[in-house]
Each structure stands twice: as C-alpha cells, then as structure tokens.
Design a binder for these strands. Structure first.
Length: 476
RNA sequence: GCCGAGGUAGCUCAGUUGGUUAGAGCACCAGAUUGUGGAUCUGGGGGUCGCCGGUUCGAUCCCGGCCCUCGGUACCA
C-alpha cells in the first residue's frame, strides 16, 4: 500500500548526471568553436515534426523506428530521427534564407530501435551542412572541418576516409549491375570493415547462414560481377593520387568515368593544397555509407587509437533531399558526429573533461552570525569572475562541509570563523594538498594537527589571493 | 528478429535440498571529533527476493506464462 511512484526511465533513455554533462558540454564547445571559425551558423528545429515530413526519405522500415507523438489536435506527429530531414524542411520552408546556407546543429534525435550497448533511443548528433552549392569546396571544407575538429579534441591519430557514390555508380556500370540493386550493393559494401571481404562477397551472391542460425539473404550477383567488385576494392593505397590514377585505369572503358573521378580528385587536390595529407585523409573506395540518399562524395572518420568505436563522424553529398519538399533539387553536403559515441571514445582515450563541479571555491558556513560576511565574500569572488559557491546545506559541522567540497572536487575552501574575522583574515584550504597528504598518514590526529594545504590571506586581498592560489593549482 | 545466460538492498553478489525475524561487502546517514576531508571504530536506515498465476499447510526457492537485463548475432534510413 504505497502511493509513491517508482522512479525509472523507459528503456534506451538515460539521465546525464552533472559530471557527464560537464564532459559532454566541453566536448561540444570545442566542436562548436571549430565550426564557428569556419563561419557556420546555428539552427534549432523542434523535436517534433509532422509524420509525413519525417517519413518518405527513409522508406518503410525506417518509419518503424520513428517515435510517434500525439498532440491535443490528434495530428500525426513523430520525433525527429536525424537532423538532416528537418534541415531540408527548413530550406524548403524559408525560401528567403541566403544560400549557400551553412549551418550547424547539435541536438537530440530519437529512434525506436532495440537499444544495444552504446546505442540509445535518444542520442545527440552534431551536424554541419552546406546547402545550395555544388562547389567541391563545400565538400572539401566539410572534410577539412572533420580533421580540424578531431585535432582540436586531441583524439590522437585519426583518419578521414572518403569516396563517392558517383564513383560507386560507375562500379555498378562496370560490373553490369542494374541501378535498382545499387542501394543493396552499397549497404553490403558498407559492412566490409566489420565482417570482411569473404562474408561481403557471399552476401553479394547467394547469402549464407550465420553462426547464430540466422539466414542472411544474398543480393543475387553472379561470380563475374563480384570479381569486378573485388578488382575495384583491390585499389588501395596510402596515396590519394595513386588511388585516383588506378581508378582511371580500371574504368578506362566507361565514357562518363573521367568527369566523376575529376570531382573526387579536385577535392583531394584542394585538401593537399591545405595540408590535409594522406596521413589523415585517404581516398578509400570501400567507403559506401549505408544511407540511400547520398549522391556524391561520402566520407567517414575513424580514430586510429580507438578503432573499435567505428565511424564516429560521417557524411556525404545528398543533392536530392530537398526535392521532396520543393520539387526542385537543391544540392547539399554535410556530416554528422555521433556525440555519444565520440564521447565514449574520448573517455576511453582519457581525453574527457573530468570536472564534477563548476565552482572553484566553496565558502564554508561556520557561524550563523557571520552569514552576511560569507555572502559578501561569495559575491565578491563571483563579481570578479571566479566561480564560487556558498555552503547552503544544513550540515553544521565543518568536516561535513569540507567533505562536500571533496566530493565535488572543488579545489579551494574558505574558512572564516570568529577568529579569522577578528584578525581581518580568511583561511583558505587547498583540498588537493590535504588529500595528497592524507595518503601518507594513517594517524588522524597528526593529520588534523598539520592542517595540510592551509594558508591565510588578508580579508581585503580575498580576490587576489584566491586568484593566485587557483593559478598555482592550475599550473601544477 | 534469432541463440544463450540471468533477475535477491542504491551497487556487486551470497543464500535457502520448500519452513518462523533473507545476509555480506561497498555506498549512504549519525556519532567517536560542538573549527578541519582520508583511515579506523560504534551504531543506524534501507528488501512487494522481476511480475502474474499454479502446486503446497506453507513459495524468494518447484511449475507455467509474461516482463526486463546481460552476452553473442542480425538490422540500423
């Protein structure tokens, strides 16, 4: 007989507690700085869209993973499953937006799939897109931006691999595969990294029976078609120039091949000119991307020091997406970062912000009669730009208050009781110093007697004194 | 979706061949210490034993169904 509600959240969703949010925000801030440096502008769109706006680009199986939403008017609505479709809607709806429209957007999206390790039903994407330009410079700066982002995040070595759907379409011609099978072929090729060439070629032909007993249906190509695909995939080199050259050789018999290979090579050359060399951007013909709507260059990034996280950043050119809304093709190219996956990778690499608190100083509450003194100190520090917190909990014992600072990793605590007040000074405690000292002592009373990490500063020099101590801590 | 394992305190888990008040460690709270964090000691709070039904004098334990979680596999616009 209880009237309380069990606190819980639906599967695939999660809370992000303060330490996780601090890590996430500082990562997002770093990425945002890169894109604002590139001159991209922010955009926000509603989480909820009309169902017919969302569906269509995706096909029926995609529609199943849309979260349905109801409103009082009983309209057919759903939660967005990516940021690209809402962007296409905005482009079509606001005809007076200056183009090219180059925007970034960081926001949660929802997919009603089965949750899995590292896969949630609500997750955050950071997207950047340039809409309304066919220029290869747009593709180039998306790729360069991916590099600059990963460099800023200090993720170690990374590789942005790119190819082109137009080149893959040449492959369909070369192998005698009809365009209706193209999407299936690309979807299978996209698994190459994960399952290997052997399984991919079997899946391209008759399919096979998986270890778990599941049948994987084949695409139905014949042996000679798969051989031609293998010759294409065989073109591998650390040099983008060499890949392009060998590609020209392989497709020598196709009339329209040179023009498409030129596009890829121009991007590659722009990147060479900017110093994005073969060590971090490669022309990799096995990159296909699973998505159906890509029409031109496609790209994805992997972390060489954490390859198990897979593609943490991917995108491509999609010149047909706005057509649905406008009846007019508007070219666009963009990329999307899986914020959660990238964050997991950063955590794995030890590159995340590990702060637990925003406050740098805790003003302890030692004597109720001095409350206004404490508030004045707190606001003095705040007005000087030093993040400061006054202890507003109920614990009267000083030990509890210091424990609070310890738990939140607040580096400095200010102690000011009637003794300090009388002398016109405050005691400042460096929490980390005491923590280090505690490891070496096992006798409590001597540790207490030592008062580790404590200094005294005159009350009137509060701000300067705290600044100096914080600077010391930060440089340590 | 498919194969396998599991569900007992906030967390990690033990346990009961079916029997009265279900345990440990960690975490949490209080005190030893009314002006000093760690360690230690003492005490304390916290459980529909996943849910529903069946068998039984009696079920956390046995049986059935369902739900959920984890591992593998597939899918992922």
């Amino acid at each position: 007989m209880t009237d309380t509600v069990e606190p819980r959240i639906s599967r695939g969703l999660r809370d992000l507690l303060p330490d996780q949010m601090l890590a996430r925000q500082s990562m997002i801030d770093t990425i945002r700085r890169v894109y604002e440096l590139y001159g991209f502008v922010p955009l926000s769109t509603p989480a909820i869209e009309f169902l017919d706006v969302l569906s269509g680009s995706a096909g029926t199986e995609a529609q199943q993973s849309i979260f349905r939403v109801t409103n009082p008017e009983n309209e057919a609505l759903g939660l967005r499953f990516d940021l690209t479709v809402p962007l296409a809607r905005v482009i079509a709806q606001y005809a007076d937006l200056p183009r090219p429209f180059r925007r970034y957007q960081v926001a949660p999206v929802w997919r009603a799939d089965k949750p899995d390790k590292g896969r949630y039903r609500e997750f955050t994407q950071f997207d950047l897109d340039s809409v309304g330009t066919v220029s290869e410079v747009a593709d180039t700066e998306i790729i360069a931006g991916m590099c600059d982002t990963l460099s800023s995040l200090e993720v170690g070595r990374y590789l942005v691999r790119f190819s082109s759907r137009a080149v893959l379409n040449l492959l369909l011609d070369f192998a005698g595969i009809g365009p209706e099978q193209g999407a299936d072929v690309f979807r299978v090729l996209d698994k190459l990294d994960k399952v290997g060439l052997d399984k991919v070629s079997r899946e391209l032909m008759n399919g096979y029976k998986d270890e778990s007993g599941d049948t994987i249906r084949g695409v139905g190509l014949d042996g000679s078609q798969v051989d031609r695909i293998k010759r294409f995939l065989d073109i591998k080199s650390d040099s983008r120039r060499e890949v392009a050259a060998r590609l020209r050789e392989l497709f020598a018999t196709l009339d329209h091949a040179p023009a498409q290979i030129d596009v890829v090579e121009r991007i590659s050359n722009h990147l060479y000119a900017l110093g994005y060399d073969d060590d971090r951007v490669s022309l990799d013909l096995s990159i296909a991307r699973g998505l159906a709507y890509y029409t031109g260059p496609v790209f994805e990034a992997i972390l060489l020091d954490a390859p198990q996280f897979g593609s943490i950043f991917g995108g491509g050119r999609y010149d047909g997406l706005v057509m649905r809304f406008l009846g007019e093709a508007i070219p666009a190219v963009g990329a999307s970062i899986g914020v959660d996956r990238l964050l997991a990778a950063l955590a794995h690499l030890g590159r995340v912000d590990t702060r637990k608190a925003t406050a740098r100083v805790l003003v302890t509450n030692m004597d109720k009669a001095l409350t206004d003194d404490y508030l004045q100190m707190t606001w003095e520090l705040r007005r000087a730009g030093i993040p400061t917190e006054f202890y507003i909990g109920t614990a009267k014992r000083l030990g509890k208050q210091l424990e609070y600072a310890d738990q939140y990793d607040i580096p400095l605590a200010i102690l000011c009781g009637s003794n300090e007040k009388a002398k016109g000074e405050v005691t400042v405690k460096n929490m980390a110093a005491g923590r280090a000292k505690a490891k070496m002592l096992d006798d409590r009373s001597s540790w207490l007697a030592e008062r580790p990490g404590q200094t005294t500063i005159p009350r009137e020099r509060l701000v300067e004194g705290i600044r100096e101590l914080l600077a010391e801590i930060e440089s340590a």
